[in-house]
Write a protein that binds this DNA or RNA. Structure first.
Length: 643
RNA sequence: GCCAGCGUAGCUCAGUCGGUAGAGUAACUGAUUCGUAAUCAGUAGGUCGGGGGUUCGACUCCCCCCGCUGGCUCCA
């Protein structure tokens, strides 16, 4: 009898005609219950498919629902159920694509009218009926010509378009009930396997992501193996909402935007500004330590400057319109680089001067389309922690390595320890020679390899003037935000005719590195707020210590304590309102102030304070000097020392 | 920019069928002097995002604009 071999070496014999479902069932019923599909000789197949009996022995591996691959199959099957539900409810629906995504799936539909929330309820209800009906997912294969014919017949032009792009000779088709869809598979054995899903939102989405194409209607959903997991996922989303920087920014009075002022323009309130000030001070002192010169440059420049730089041609959709000044056209700057170049060019530079590192907290303005604005994370006016390094070709890779190390040090100082690193290569729209691009990509790659950091390649995602390394930080809902960026540029030195005197007394062209570590202060601040849920570490907290008096009798002593702490350099507030202690504590907790000092008769008599830490709760009364010593130790960035 | 949803007191949110708006909280005033997450009472607070239309009458229905949110596209 033919047999299959499980991953642990166990063998199960079977007779002809049995499918894998039968075989696994005979082997271990419990295992079958957890399986959604299987791999045969490493290839994913449906549970209901049959083994090739000519092979006497096949190695198989059930794909379990609680594996990433299993969950993916599960969600994909749920997407098919959604498509069936939509097709059965609305007339003239044409199917787009229905892939799985993190935590769920979506399906795109070409429909007459966009879905309303009520439509989603109907789709949800129909999906549940389909699941209850427990229809089998029946696979079959068709030649491409047959499939094209089939989907033309079915009035599914998008499917026909997809088939044309499939390189294989045949394509997979799955049918459940009377619904048929193009699909690679594998799928669940039947719709009844789906236990827990929830439609989350509907949104317009261009066919193939191209805004020249027709806009389809997309329904997003999340799906999980069990109802408990779904519930847990929804709970996590709720938790994430609580950390939303927009919500916390309001609650802690950190920043706002105003309709009167305009979209995407941020107002930094005193407490947000206090944090920004601390970040800027830290940033400046670290840059000086690392050999950067800090500069200041204007926010406007003549439009010709941007024609020279290439921004006028390559970046125009993001530029604000020119304004006329004495017959000259000026625009607000979208970038800082040309200004730094002009400082470089203000005198002749020698190879002995290089590398030159100019750093600036440079405020820029970019026109972003209204639909993309998002809290602090995507705005129209923002301050980059920008720098431009001018290097000789020999220095390039070494400088990139140093910048990379410096970047990670700065990010770690703020408590970020996990990020995704991408190497972005030449885009379709680019300037410069292919040789330059190859050299620049090589230098970035070399620095990454030397640093032994894990990174991914993002093909075609570079800037028009050069390739880059991006470091992305994830926000609480799993969205990834690009903060740090390190870009190599051969192009601007060329365009601005930037030179240095080389060893031979000749004229050579430096290479530029553009880099921003935090990216923009606005976005970085947004990420910081979410990272800490507003409970900033001591060194960043706008108010580090709040003094809470028990009665008016304690006000005088509290003032001396306040003065002492201020003299020691701490940001201190005194809450001497005529309120109960519990009330004051509640407020200091809600404001997420790291330390509250309770000051009552007992403390005034013994010249002590009773600290209450945001992290650890109430502490025993201690002398002021002792408390100051304690918080001095804590009042530092988290990144350690730069090597 | 495109698709959808939303915009009511400083904040969080009710407001039914079209009949001129309400709660909690914050603010203010007074009382209370209190020991680790909300003391009590009173007062005041609104062009219902803006403009136009329908109607005897619009927070409510329709149109345009602004802003926000979730996506698409694009990016620090």
């Amino acid at each position: 009898m033919p047999k299959v071999i499980f991953p642990d070496g166990a063998v199960q014999e079977y007779s002809e005609g049995e499918n894998f479902l039968d075989i696994i069932k005979a082997f271990d019923k419990k295992l079958l219950k957890k399986s959604v599909a299987l791999k045969v000789e490493g290839v994913a197949k449906d549970l209901r498919s049959k083994p090739d009996v000519t092979a006497k022995s096949l190695s198989i591996e059930p794909i379990l629902l609680d594996s990433p691959e299993g969950l993916d199959i599960y969600r994909h099957s749920a997407a098919h159920v959604m498509a069936e539900a939509v097709k059965s409810l609305f007339d003239g629906v044409k199917l787009g694509i229905g892939p799985t995504i993190d935590n769920g799936f979506y399906y795109d539909f070409d429909v007459e009218k966009p879905f309303t929330p009520e439509d989603l309820d109907k789709v949800d209800a129909r999906m549940r009926e389909i699941i209850k009906g427990n229809h089998k997912f029946e696979p079959r294969r068709m030649s491409k010509a047959e499939a094209v014919e089939f989907f033309k017949e079915a009035n599914e032009p998008y499917k026909v378009e997809i088939i044309a792009d499939i390189p294989d000779d045949t394509v997979g088709i799955y049918t459940q009930g009377d619904f048929t869809d193009l699909c690679r598979g594998p799928h669940l054995p039947s719709t009844g396997y789906i236990q827990a899903f929830k439609l989350t939102s509907a949104a317009g989405a261009y066919w193939r992501g191209d805004e020249k194409n027709r806009m389809l209607q997309r329904i997003y959903a999340t799906a999980w193996g069990t109802k408990a997991e779904l519930k847990e996922h929804l709970r996590r989303l709720e938790e994430a909402k609580k950390r939303d920087h927009r919500k916390i920014g309001k609650a802690l009075d950190l920043f706002s935007t105003s309709e009167e002022i305009g979209s995407g323009l941020v107002l930094w309130h005193p407490k947000g500004a206090a944090i920004r000030g601390i970040i800027e001070d830290f940033w400046k002192s670290e840059h000086r330590k690392s050999g950067y010169d800090i500069i200041y440059t204007p926010h406007l420049a003549r439009v010709d400057l941007w024609k020279t730089s290439g921004h006028w041609d390559f970046y125009q959709e993001n530029l604000f319109s020119p304004m006329d000044l004495d017959g000259q056209e000026y625009i607000v700057r979208p970038m800082n680089c040309p200004f730094h170049i002009e400082i470089y060019k203000s005198r002749i530079r020698s190879y002995r001067d290089l590398p030159i590192r100019y750093a600036e907290l440079g405020t820029v303005y970019r026109y972003e389309r209204s639909g993309v604005l998002h809290g602090l994370l995507r705005v129209r006016g923002f301050t980059q922690d920008d720098a431009h390094l001018f290097t000789t070709p020999d220095q390039l890779e070494g400088e990139i390595g140093d910048v990379l190390e410096f970047t990670l040090y700065i990010l770690k100082s703020f408590g970020f320890n996990e990020f995704d690193i991408y190497l972005s290569t030449r885009p379709d729209k680019y300037v410069g020679s292919l040789d330059d691009w190859a050299q620049a990509e090589g230098a970035l790659k070399g620095a990454l390899e030397a640093s032994e950091l894990k990174y991914m390649v993002d093909p075609g995602e570079g800037v028009f003037y050069g390739p880059k390394i991006d470091i992305k930080i994830k926000d609480v809902i799993g969205r990834s935000w690009q903060c740090s960026t390190i870009q190599v540029d051969f192009n601007l030195p060329e365009r601005f005719n930037v030179t240095y005197r080389d060893e031979e007394g000749g004229t050579s062209r430096p290479i530029m590195i553009h880099r921003a570590l935090m990216g923009s202060l606005e976005r970085f601040f947004g990420c910081l707020i979410e990272h800490y849920a507003g409970a900033f570490p001591l060194w960043l907290a706008p108010v580090q210590v709040i003094l809470l008096t028990v009665t008016d009798r304690n006000n005088d002593y509290a003032k001396t304590v306040q003065k002492q702490l201020q003299r020691a350099g701490f940001r201190v507030e005194l809450d001497s309102r005529n309120e109960k202690l519990g009330f004051k504590i509640r407020e200091s907790e809600l404001q997420k102030i790291p330390y509250s000092l309770v000051i009552g008769d007992k403390e005034a008599e013994t010249l002590t304070v009773s600290p209450r830490s945001k992290q650890a709760g109430a502490m025993d009364a201690i002398a002021m000097e002792e408390f100051i010593g304690l918080i001095k130790k804590e009042n530092v960035p988290q990144g350690g020392e730069l090597s």
